[in-house]
Nucleic acid binder design. Structure first.
Length: 799
RNA sequence: GCCGGUGUGAUGGAAUGGCAGACGUGACGGACUCAAAAUCCGUUGGUAGCGAUACCGUGUGGGUUCAAGUCCCACCACCGGCACCA
């Protein structure tokens, strides 16, 4: 058979559609399996081969699971709110709704051409009212629970995109969208109190099966540290300065205190500070720096002593000077630290610069040259002296602090609350009304969704306010509580909102009564296997786990972790080895590959090109290898034999085992290589019997389903190959009668012999000695040791 | 700075401590062809040799072992995450 992909691919896609072959059944006697891939953002550029690789992994798993008798939910949708669409809308003067619909249509046709076995009856689009109604519903629930709140604060603002960015979206001081510098700006901002779930998000990682790298990145992001809070009295006024430290064991080494420039102590006691002018000047200087600049100046410490406020050591009663410096952040801990220069690098740098005492309290290291952060015997530390390790010193100190009532154990997280608003049009409107009498009130649940109004001009205002602020009919409204005149919130939600719960909507996409039916959620959840990009591990994944845990606490979802397993695929790089991008012109469009080689070849190649989890460059010439493979497979229908040799049958069963196992560990490249090797063997044997070829078609079907259906039909198979039963390896048939083993003499490879597979050590050794060259080599030597690894090698240690 | 990952032919990449380089690309040779493409068959880590063969070879340097790409110790390079986080 010829590989006529143009005809057969559309033919089988139509037949699958007609048979509703890939539609998941709610409730079924079969075991359920929920495979999830990250839904795409439908940009105007269409899909490149990287998208195809991202979906092909779980596509193969899903198809295999169905053949193994599972009821599989493998859905797809579109994460369609977002800035690029809005920017194109501004550029071309077309409404984002229109652009979004066009792009979704383009993406859908591209995905369908590849023959993915998505359940197309469950498509969700985050920009549809039926969908964002429930995104708003969840927001209102969070508002009711006190988890959504508004606060005036310094924010990361991108002057180019005219949006406020979360810390996550402005890493390295650059806007995540346009990569320009962000600046600090004071603004009223919506926050979601994700920090309240920090511990749960961390502990939940114990219950799930994430790639170790994914888990580690989430742990880093949450950034839990354990330590202690300690209260230092201020000598001059009736006030305590509360600090957080991870090293309470070094409390006797404190020689100064440092507070952040924004610390409220300065405002409260401004009149007691002798050098307040200088302090204020320093504070202003710091305010001008961006967060990025502040964290960049690692080496050179700045700051000054606050004259007139002195701390008192809670145990020794010694007086300790207080400094202000921007190496202490207001946003972490209490915004104040106890400085132990002998055992902390930053404190050491500061003490050296300002000539402050450095008192070692742990033996080891040389404080003349640098801070010592290692373990050792406690010294200069009163009741801690003689203790030899950090752990017991900390425990003893915490005991003492509790006794004196001046401190206690505590934990801190690096994770900050989630800045949850954007001043743009193409997003979910935040369903809140600002009422002069009632304050902030959310729109009643039964009145959701709060629809995005039609506007003509999507440009944000100069002050960075949302385009919605210009629509009087939208802004002016009545308070849902008191009925008085009120104003609507005009900010919209960030793009992460819609993607935080989409996997729930797939379970029941048309429900008008709730975000999804309870029984269906109970049936399908959790997602059994979620695959996506590494770039979404710390943002999307943490956000959606947070929402899910919140919904669990509300009783809406039946489990507290949404994703049982998470893996990540590597990027496809351009042919030049760098990331694909439009500006570099190295993007490979999936349609172009399907046009020239067909979907089966594209699908096979993206999985064959390398380790699924590693990045690999696209190669036009390498695609040909997969093309030849598919063609050689198709041509097997013209090479049918009546019988099959035991050797070939053994290879077939070994291939069944290899492919079955490799799919589970995402080693798609070696699974395909095994099938290629089998086909090479069939060619060498001159052909194969029909039954074996049908088995091979089933094995290849998850990878290259169209040609497998065609071959299956040609051979007279019942129904669809895609619906056939997954082959099982018969171990007894993989046994071969004789094997070639390597022979080493003293660990060096000296030859090979063919012996019965089940030969004993003595039989194998006899065969070695019987071999002409090997026997001659060993004849004059004294044999010290014999090592026989069945089926592998025989090593004779001799001298 | 801390944490993680990676390092193998010309090239993408394979190898439960057991024959390094599976499978694919490329290159070379052959068959078919007037010819080319396609296809099929074969060769292809390096050095020396006509050859059998010998020696070398998985980022670097040590070590464990009958046997190391794989395990241990020290280091180098690149990639990713976190980062004056107290």
């Amino acid at each position: 058979m010829k590989h006529d992909f143009n005809t057969i691919e559309s033919k089988w896609q139509a037949k699958w559609d007609e048979a509703k072959l890939f539609e998941a059944k709610d409730f079924s006697d079969k075991p359920k399996y929920y495979t999830l891939v990250e839904f795409p953002y439908p940009s105007g550029h269409g899909m490149h081969v990287g998208h195809i690789k991202a979906y092909s992994g779980l596509e193969v798993v899903s198809r295999k699971r169905r053949m193994q008798g599972y009821n599989v939910l493998f859905p797809i949708g579109f994460d369609a709110f977002g800035l690029p669409t809005e920017n194109s809308a501004i550029k071309f003067g077309v409404h984002p709704r229109v652009l979004t619909d066009e792009n979704i249509e383009k993406f859908t046709s591209q995905l369908k051409r590849v023959g993915f076995s998505f359940d197309w009856s469950r498509v969700v689009d985050t920009t549809e009212e039926d969908y964002y109604r429930w995104t708003q519903w969840i927001f209102c629930k969070m508002f009711d629970a006190g988890l959504a709140f508004r606060d005036k604060t310094l924010v990361n603002y991108c002057p180019h995109c005219k949006v406020v960015l979360s810390n996550e979206d402005s890493q390295g001081g650059k806007c995540d969208i346009c990569h320009n510098d962000v600046v600090q700006k004071s603004k009223d901002v919506w926050y979601l109190r994700i920090t309240q779930y920090a511990d749960k998000l961390l502990q939940g990682l114990d219950k799930v099966d994430y790639l170790p790298m994914v888990r580690q990145q989430q742990e880093n992001w949450i950034g839990k540290s354990t330590g202690a809070f300690v209260n230092f009295k201020i000598k001059e006024v009736d006030e305590t300065l509360r600090i957080y430290t991870t090293r309470p064991d070094t409390l006797f080494g404190v020689t100064f205190m440092v507070i952040a420039p924004e610390h409220p102590l300065l405002d409260t006691y401004a009149d007691r500070v002798a050098n307040m002018d200088a302090v204020l000047a320093y504070r202003n200087e710091c305010a001008k720096k961006t967060e990025f600049e502040r964290t960049q100046l690692v080496k050179d410490k700045t700051g000054l002593k606050i004259e007139g406020l002195t701390a008192v050591h809670p145990i020794t009663g010694k007086e300790i000077p207080v400094f202000i410096s921007d190496y202490v952040m207001m946003g972490y801990g209490t915004g104040a630290i106890m400085a132990v220069p002998a055992h902390d690098g930053r404190d050491y740098d500061f003490a050296k610069k300002f000539g402050i005492d450095i008192i070692p309290v742990i033996e080891g290291g040389d404080i003349e040259t640098e801070a010592y952060t290692g373990d050792g015997n406690m010294i200069n530390s009163d009741f801690l002296n003689g203790l030899t390790d950090k752990k017991s010193a900390i425990a003893r100190m915490l005991e003492e602090l509790a006794k004196l009532g001046v401190g206690e154990a505590g934990v801190q997280f690096k994770m900050k609350d989630w800045a949850f608003n954007r001043q743009r049009y193409w997003g979910e409107p935040i369903p809140i009304v600002h009422c002069p009498t009632c304050g902030m009130v959310h729109i009643p649940y039964e009145e959701l969704p709060l629809r995005l109004p039609k506007v003509e001009n999507f440009e944000p205002g100069e002050g960075g306010e949302s385009p919605l602020a210009k629509i009087e009919s939208f802004v002016n409204c009545k308070c849902p509580k008191c009925g008085g005149d009120a104003k609507r919130e005009t900010d919209t939600m960030p793009q992460w909102a819609g993607s935080s719960w989409y996997f729930l909507r797939y379970i029941d996409p048309n429900n008008t009564m709730s975000l999804a039916d309870e029984a269906k959620l109970k049936y399908w959840l959790p997602v059994d296997w979620y695959n996506g990009g590494m770039e979404h591990v710390t943002r999307h994944m943490i956000y959606s786990r947070f929402w899910h845990k919140f919904l669990y606490d509300l009783g809406v979802v039946p489990c507290d972790e949404p994703y049982a397993k998470r893996t990540a695929q590597g990027l496809i790089l351009g042919a030049n080895g760098v990331k694909m991008s439009k500006s570099l012109g190295n993007v490979v469009d999936s349609n172009d590959v399907v046009d020239s080689y067909g979907a089966d070849v594209l699908r096979t190649y993206v999985l064959f090109m390398g380790d699924y989890e590693q990045a690999a460059p696209w190669s036009d010439s390498s695609v040909k290898g997969c093309k030849r493979f598919i063609e050689r497979f198709a041509a097997l229908t013209d090479m049918l034999t009546e019988t099959v040799s035991p050797e070939l049958e053994a290879s077939l069963h070994r291939t069944i085992k290899k492919v079955t196992d490799d799919i589970e560990s995402m080693k798609f490249n070696t699974a395909i290589a095994a099938m290629m090797a089998l086909i090479n063997e069939i060619y060498a044997a001159g052909g194969i019997d029909k039954a074996s070829l049908m088995t091979l078609a089933k094995l290849l079907c998850p990878f290259a389903p169209h040609i497998c259906e065609e071959v299956w039909a040609e051979l007279g198979g019942n129904g669809f190959c895609s619906a056939a039963e997954w082959p099982v390896c018969d171990e007894s048939k993989t046994k071969v009668s004789s094997v070639e083993i390597a022979v080493q003499i003293s660990g060096k490879l000296k030859g090979k012999i063919v012996i019965p597979a089940e030969a004993t050590e003595d039989e194998a050794f006899a065969a070695v000695m019987a071999d002409e060259t090997l026997g001659a080599l060993l004849a004059s030597k004294q044999i010290i040791k014999k090592i026989y690894v069945k089926g592998r090698l025989f090593n004779v240690v001799a001298k």
